[in-house]
């Protein structure tokens, strides 16, 4: 559920409706630099009405899914 919503946000952000995303996709593979990552994570936070810690450990979509799931649990 969280993963699907994040994929939707990500596809919208990148304007690529067919973008292949898995839990192990890294921001680097998705061609998102650190500034994109900040923008994207903030959009995700707004969508789930929560906030997560954004630091160097946030490398993959799975990392974001894990933190969001914990935050809204």
């Amino acid at each position: 559920m969280v993963f699907e919503k994040i994929v939707e946000i990500l596809r919208n952000y990148k304007e690529e409706p067919e973008l292949e995303v898995t839990m192990t996709s890294s921001f680097e593979e998705l061609e998102l630099d650190s500034l994109d990552t900040v923008e994207l994570v903030m959009e995700i936070e707004e969508a789930f009405d929560t906030s997560i810690e954004m630091d160097g450990t946030l490398l993959t979509i799975g990392d974001v899914v894990g933190l969001i799931e914990k935050a809204i649990a």
């Binding site: 900040v38 923008e39 903030m42 906030s51």
Partner: peptide, 12 residues
């Protein structure tokens, strides 16, 4: 900050 996104994040 080099972008408005990071500025918003910093404010928060």
């Amino acid at each position: 900050v080099p972008s408005s996104g990071l500025a918003r994040y910093s404010e928060r």
